[in-house]
Amino acid sequence: MIRINLDVEMAKKKILLGQLAKEIDITNSNLSILKTGKAKAIRFATLDAICKALNCQPGDILEYIEDESQNN
């Protein structure tokens, strides 16, 4: 499964959810969905905007971890 580390990156850059949402031009609720890991998909445009705003790579935000429940 894919884990979203947006909260970690935001903490590193000391940026609030509202500020980031305003900067990348998406709603607070949509960014909150992404931050809490409830999102089912992410657009390249959104990922591009987040990476630009946080000055990071997509790999810093998205991380693949092995899901044990799916293997069994």
């Binding site: 409830k38 999102a39 998909a41």
Partner: peptide, 8 residues
Amino acid sequence: AEENKFTV
């Protein structure tokens, strides 16, 4: 519809 709703 759910997938669309949760696409950011």
